[in-house]
Design a binder for these strands. Structure first.
Lengths: 336, 336
DNA sequence: CTGTTAGCGCTTTCAC
DNA sequence: GTGAAAGCGCTAACAG
């Protein structure tokens, strides 16, 4: 049996309901259209018939006419980072509350975000949320041509037609440096995220700027945002001939937690010899007393959902929305 | 401006392409239909015109005719369990390789899986994958009426029309007990998952059966599959007047890891005084030397994808597919 | 191989 | 308020 040869399911259509209820097909349609005018009598008859047959409007057929699918494309790449699952859960919940649903596209390791976008658009999603890779202008243009809003979550601008919702990465870096310096650190270490990504660069920039302002030296290493890379970078920064660093900032918690473990292995006691700050506040951070910059996940998602709603109602792209991050002081900083 | 009042996007249709290429609309359609017969000449003209206009077929319109949307509904509840993100990532990848995409539905905390299903079906998804809550037969019936395959991932049977892909939870429990006993444990402890869920019950059953077979006593506590609950249960099992347990099995790693920490807090040294085994093999398990029963994620996903493909080609529901779990020996069991 | 035609299930004018 | 009819963008017969 060849694929696709199956008879399509015998679905219940509005016409079936109309016949059973002895009304026109349009009456059925109106009954299921929120703002339409139907007499109470008709509505009841239709609803009864629909319930009897198990009828529910076909959203795809509807969207062909209304131009609205109530689906939002979500392009994701880094589900393995524990920061994302809570985000995804909240995002899905917020959109579901608006009557929309996420259509998921994951970026294959060997592929680019770019190449995925046309596929996303084919599904007639009402908007595209991108939370992966770097977004080039070609892509934004493709969406703009189709008048499909594009929202970038935790990515920084590449195109003025897209909305941007993100946390203040640069200020987070700044806060980290300030906190370490205030805690008495004199030789700082910075574990970079994947270079080239805006979040990594901004966090680093803020950190370096604040350290420079205070004239505190900084040694750097690249951890690539991964646990393994973070461990490697930490080892690199905590050993060697030079005077060891006494304050460490990692561009995400995954790496910071590894640094914590590496420090332990090397016999450095935290927070006495070494203070550590991460970024994201993933669940494990609390468990291991890791100080970190917490992103306001709930606010990010709410802002995104609100902006999405606005754009779908015709509003133009808004200026980037940058939400504050908040330093959570835990044991790794000498907090209670 | 009222919602939905916006003019639908000015989309490029197959007719636009046809006109530009001086061919019929069907020629355009055929060009984009894999198995159709078009001359090389026409195909080129069409593709050129399409590229020029930025045309791509509207999948929703297509699905109205073919009865195939290439979307698969995914009903999820427990994204916060670190076991799920890798699963979701692999699943999405596997389906994407088949040219399908996941439409996400998360179960709100105050709601039932049941109530979500009609909404899922409205989107004309080709199939529904459920990875949440307990699935009642009413729901399965609804899907069956629409001839929509239902696949349950890591849930046990409730309806013969659904496919089931899961790992051998009961045997995992058995293996855990056997391993602890073989390692010399004489007083076992069991931290239950959320009671009522099949995975929790089966893991417990296997564990208890094997312990009983070996006539080793077992104390039990409920951890509800959560980190907090696991810590509480561990504290309960590791303290108290009775002789302390020397072998502990937790129904998932989240709880087992907490148990590991609680044991440390209580001054019990692992694996000397106490051996611990978890379930799932989440990333943290390796990091903390937790022995655990690893689920064959990749195999689960592949089996699911294959079964999905089969069902969509007309195959009937298959008998439950139970994949073996594998005990990973780490420090918590005294392994190297 | 090609164009013409019908129609997927639905919403939306438009008369009544 | 209601039904008839048109048509969203596309595929699938069907003649040629």
């Amino acid at each position: 049996m060849t694929p696709g040869t199956q008879p399509p399911a015998a679905r219940v259509t509005s016409l079936d309901v109309a016949r059973l209820a002895n009304v026109s097909q349009s009456a059925v349609s109106r009954t299921f259209t929120p703002g339409a005018s139907v007499s109470e009598k008709t509505r009841e008859r239709v609803l009864a018939a629909a319930a009897h047959l198990g009828y529910r409007p076909n959203i795809l057929a509807r969207s062909l006419i209304t131009g609205r699918s109530n689906m939002v494309g979500l392009v994701l790449s880094e589900l393995s980072n524990p920061y994302y699952p809570p985000l995804l859960e909240k995002l899905s919940g917020a959109l579901q509350a608006q009557g929309r649903h996420l259509l998921l596209f994951t970026v294959p390791h060997d592929q680019d975000v770019e190449t995925l976008i046309p596929r996303v658009l084919q599904y007639q999603v009402d908007a595209v949320v991108i939370c992966a890779g770097t977004v080039s202008s070609g892509m934004a243009a493709a969406c703009a041509r189709d008048r499909r809003p594009v929202l970038l979550l935790n990515r920084t601008a590449s195109h003025p037609q897209a909305d941007h919702v993100l946390c203040d990465n640069e200020d987070g870096g700044r806060q980290a440096a300030a906190a370490l310096i205030a805690a008495g650190c004199q030789r700082l270490g910075l574990i970079h995220g994947q270079s080239g990504t805006m979040t990594a660069d901004l966090r680093a920039r803020g950190f370096l700027a604040e350290a420079a302002r205070a004239a505190v030296p900084v040694r750097q290493a690249d951890g690539g945002f991964t646990a393994a890379g973070g461990a490697e970078a930490a080892r690199c920064l905590l050993t060697g001939p030079e005077a060891p660093v006494d304050g460490l900032f990692a561009a995400n918690d995954l790496m910071a937690l590894e640094a914590l473990r590496v420090a332990e292995t090397l016999g450095r006691s935290v927070p006495q010899d070494l203070k550590i700050i991460g970024f994201d506040d993933i669940p494990d951070a609390a468990r291991f007393g890791l100080s970190t910059l917490r992103q306001p996940l709930e606010d990010l998602v709410q802002a995104l959902a609100a902006q999405l709603e606005a754009r779908l109602n015709g509003a133009p792209a808004a200026p980037p929305q940058v939400l504050p991050v908040c330093l959570i002081r835990r044991a790794s900083l000498g907090a209670a």
